[in-house]
Design a protein around this nucleic acid. Structure first.
Length: 850
RNA sequence: GCCAGAGUGGCGGAACCGGCAGACGCGCGCGAUUCAAAAUCGCGUUCCGGAAACGGACUGAGGGUUCGAUUCCCUCCUCUGGCACCA
């Protein structure tokens, strides 16, 4: 015990030294000319926030770094880059809050976050660092935008948009959650504005179909499938007469053409062009009022699920193409203008929403799909809508047809008359791509009275953001850029006449749609990326990040990649082969209802009371965050235990894909383990090299086997416990039982997890001449990883009664004999007849008695 | 409502393909060291009964399949996340 004191583990001394050394020697540089196979390990692009990293942020970074270093030791050339997603609303809002210019504020935040990331000890290749706000980068974001514009993928349209009254700007649909602004939680309104959109819908089928190619978590793929929302059905054309006698075709979308005979009314979305046009004169005012109300209604009210269905009759009638029946036309906001055709045929007997609406408004309910499973009233009428399968009835010549076959037959018969066709509808909508904000990439388009939209010539890119004093939103809905005539007024690149620059900027997502391509050749000046470098490094082999990007970023990045592939710039059309979503780090938060504030744990009085008002606090386990005052800064932990210990605990805290609770004490176990490991290696190295004893050899092979298998399976938490188990075992053995080879294997196996201490031990006492990361991953021998003797449990009727020790590989006969000879077993079976003995060699013996 | 995921000691969690439930760590208890404390080391630690030997119970609840179920099947409960009038 006294000797251990000599080998005191001092991470504060070891870690900065090795980080400086790696930096000096360029140890983490990814080199294209390296002949080894490549591995591209990427963290999701961080936004450099001003509030700094907490241990929750560390989790993903530690995870990806451990994997990257493991791959490196396995003989891959590893690309593990880092950079900054620095444009966008949060960056701008943060700057406004601090009264700084976003450019200065962003630079400050980047410097701070980079310093914090260094502490982790990750093998980032900082020579490839860039930010989306670098003109050298956004020049190419603008260039890619122009490629999309030329392909007709970027276009302008006037449409109702989500307007956030607090941020005073438009939001993409994806930024509106339950009718509220995702960032500030204000209720959003609808306003009309000319917007830039991306025609992502043109790629809907490929974005959906190619999900099958990806090694991604199933839930992320499911979320994307739901978001894209492919729905097979039919467009069926009804006919509507307006009061002036004009006839209008009214296509409706349905997934249930088999229920067409049960359509008892038709509903138009309030914004549908025929709503007012077709309304009877006496009803026109009511329809217009209803539409106006619906238009102004806040999104939150409109989408509330249990909201009662409202609507007005237009007084017009539509003709059902299958039987010529006249049914009333209604306008109701439960029909959405942007889905399908913005109009539906209502079949109350077989659709819950139509059923509710029909009941409320006294409309007819006609059952046309017969099923014994349907719930009925005493008189045999439907007690609720039957939405399942059944047999067609009251459907003319289709009577008796099963509904599944009926879908096809009805459409076929309509198609012959040109009154219907099979179609596919998508939930996915085009992506609103413009923001009325200062801090984003200017959209490189010039508006000319004569030539219309004119792209800024490539040679004039980037369109730089002007340096300005005021960049706050105007509140008029225009970008602050609109208020700078010297920037806005330009000559038309085409005709030289007076023209104006587009003043909208791109959304934050823009820069993160292709950054993973730029890392391959970050300083390339002839294009967004060097095709050679991109084909050498891409696609990304392992992408690591939070689940919050399951749909938006990951869908947009896939979209951009497909467009660039169609441009002939990429030899692949999916950017991220494999995806891993780490769970969140949580911690208890303390909320005082009276004071309406969160309290940090250390200010909470005994008995979980508020220190000021003495009332009990709301205690909840929540995602760690500064705003909830439950964040833990890594700085103090690093100062006390070292980065390696923090890294180890980040992995040990729980299964990486699940949320885990951070406990302050938990890290002690990891830090203690490293101290013991450090001393153990030194102590063993002191003795003359001796061969491994049997148990040490076994422990080593079991360790390497365990770590290798667990890293491959992303089971970082149990990999760490394998290490602890190993040390517990070999510590029981004396130093003279341990070979040099075992020490080397253990140190290399630790290196992905705790790179600093592994590097230190590799050099001293193991006298490595180059970096431990130049070593190769240790091999293991399955047979040596097994113990020579094993304990086999013996059960009687499934209950454990004894354990016998037998040599590894003992056969069934031996096991049975030994088991029955066991006194405790004999006692249990005496006086009973042995019906059967189940022997599983290497596992157990179960004696069945009756 | 629909679709995922989860439910195991005081706590975080482990358990290969159906084979000793509770690995590993935290916490706690006892002991060593210390003038003392921290740190460190050793031993113990699912629960109930028992001084102990030992016996019994136990993986959200209930049922089923099996020699044997945390693991497979059915019914139900709870929690978390996503979607939510998408016709």
């Amino acid at each position: 015990m006294g000797t251990e004191k000599r080998y005191e583990y001092r991470p504060q001394e070891i870690e900065p030294r090795w980080r400086a050394r790696w930096e000096e020697t360029g140890a983490h540089r990814a080199r294209e000319e390296d002949p080894r196979p490549k591995f591209y390990c990427l963290d999701m692009f961080p936004y450099p926030s001003g509030s700094g990293l907490h241990v929750g942020h560390w989790r993903g970074y530690v995870l990806s770094d451990t994997l990257a270093r493991y791959k490196r030791l396995q003989g891959f050339k590893v690309l593990h880059p880092m950079g900054w997603d620095a444009f966008g609303l949060p960056a701008e809002n943060d700057a406004i809050k601090k009264g700084l210019h976003p450019k200065a504020n962003t630079a400050k935040n980047i410097a701070n976050m980079k310093r914090q990331l260094h502490e982790i000890g990750a093998m980032y290749d900082w020579s490839r660092e860039f930010a989306t706000t670098d003109p050298d980068y956004y020049r190419w974001t603008q260039s890619i935008f122009l490629r999309m514009w030329r392909r007709g993928l970027a276009y302008r349209a006037s449409m109702p948009i989500n307007w956030c009254p607090t941020c005073r700007c438009g939001l993409a649909n994806e930024e509106v959650v339950a009718g509220r602004c995702e960032r500030c939680n204000s209720e959003t309104e609808r306003r009309d504005r000319t917007q830039w959109l991306m025609r992502i819908t043109r790629y809907a089928d490929r974005l959906l179909g190619d999900l099958d190619k990806l090694d991604w978590p199933e839930r992320v793929k499911t979320m994307q499938r739901n978001w894209i929302g492919r729905s097979e059905g039919a467009e069926i054309t009804f006919t509507v007469k307006d009061p002036d006698g004009g006839e209008h075709a009214l296509p409706v979308f349905t997934t249930r053409p088999d229920t067409l005979f049960g359509a008892t009314y038709v509903v138009l979305a309030p914004e549908h062009p025929l709503a007012e046009r077709s309304a009877a004169r006496a009803r026109r005012g009511a329809v217009a009022d209803y539409a106006e109300e619906a238009r102004k209604a806040k999104e939150i009210e409109r989408t509330a699920a249990d909201r009662p269905k409202t609507g007005v009759a237009t007084g017009a009638f539509a003709v059902n193409p299958v039987n010529g029946e006249r049914v009333p036309v209604w306008v109701a906001d439960y029909v959405l203008v942007h889905y399908g055709t913005g109009a539906i045929m209502a079949v109350p007997a077989h659709d819950e929403r139509d059923y509710a609406f029909a009941k409320k408004n006294g409309l007819r309910i006609v059952e046309v799909i017969r099923s014994d499973e349907a719930k009925r009233n005493g008189d045999g009428t439907l007690a609720e809508a039957w939405t399942g399968e059944g047999t067609m009835v009251r459907s003319g010549r289709f009577d008796g047809t099963p509904s599944a076959a009926g879908k096809r037959k009805v459409v076929e018969s309509l198609a012959k008359k040109g009154l219907g066709k099979a179609t596919v509808s998508w939930k996915l909508r085009d992506w609103i791509f413009s923001r009325q904000r200062y801090w984003g990439e200017p959209i490189p388009i010039v508006h000319c009275a004569k030539d219309g939209e004119v792209p800024v010539p490539e040679s004039e890119l980037p369109v730089l953001l002007p340096e300005v004093e005021r960049y706050q939103v105007t509140g008029t809905g225009d970008s602050p850029l609109a208020g700078i005539p010297s920037w806005v007024d330009v000559k038309c690149p085409k005709c030289g006449g007076p023209a104006k620059r587009e003043t909208d900027t791109m959304p934050q997502w823009a820069g993160s749609c292709w950054y993973f391509l730029r890392y391959a050749s970050p300083r390339f000046a002839q294009g967004p990326f060097d095709p050679k470098a991109v084909s050498a490094w891409l696609p990304v082999d392992q992408y690591v990040g939070g689940i919050e990007h399951a749909v938006l970023h990951l869908l947009y990045a896939r979209f951009f990649t497909k467009v660039l592939a169609d441009e002939g710039l990429l030899p692949f059309d999916e950017p991220f082969a494999r995806l891993f979503n780490q769970g969140m780090i949580c911690k208890k938060s303390f909320w005082c209802d009276t004071d309406r504030i969160y309290l940090p744990e250390k200010e909470v009085a005994d008995g979980q009371q508020c220190p000021t008002c003495r009332k009990p606090l709301h205690v909840e386990l929540e995602k760690m965050g500064k705003s909830k005052k439950n964040d833990v800064a890594p700085d103090e932990l690093v100062a006390e235990h070292g980065a390696d210990a923090v890294r180890l605990y980040e992995l040990f805290v729980g299964p990486p894909e699940l949320d885990s609770e951070w406990t302050t004490n938990g890290i002690n176990g990891c830090s203690g383990f490293l101290a013991r490991f450090f001393a153990w290696v030194h102590r063993c190295a002191e003795t003359a090299d001796s061969p491994d004893s049997d148990r040490v050899a076994r422990a080593r092979h079991a360790l390497v086997k365990g770590i290798t298998e667990k890293l491959e399976a992303f089971k970082f938490n149990t990999a760490v416990s394998d290490f602890m188990k190993f040390l517990n075992e070999v510590q029981d053995a004396g130093p003279t039982e341990v070979s040099r080879e075992t020490l080397r294997a253990a140190v290399v196996a630790l290196a992905p997890f705790c790179p600093h201490v592994a590097e230190e031990l590799w050099h001293d006492p193991l006298s490595g001449s180059s970096s431990v990361f130049e070593a190769s991953w240790p091999r293991f021998d399955e047979s040596l990883a097994r113990a020579k003797e094993m304990q086999i449990p013996v059960q009687v009727n499934g209950k454990l009664r004894a354990t016998v020790t037998v040599p590894d590989g003992a056969d069934s006969a031996t096991l049975e004999k030994r088991a029955l000879a066991e006194p405790k077993v004999a006692a249990q079976i005496s006086g009973k007849s042995v019906k059967r003995v189940v022997v599983v060699p290497g596992r157990l013996v179960n004696v069945v008695v009756g």
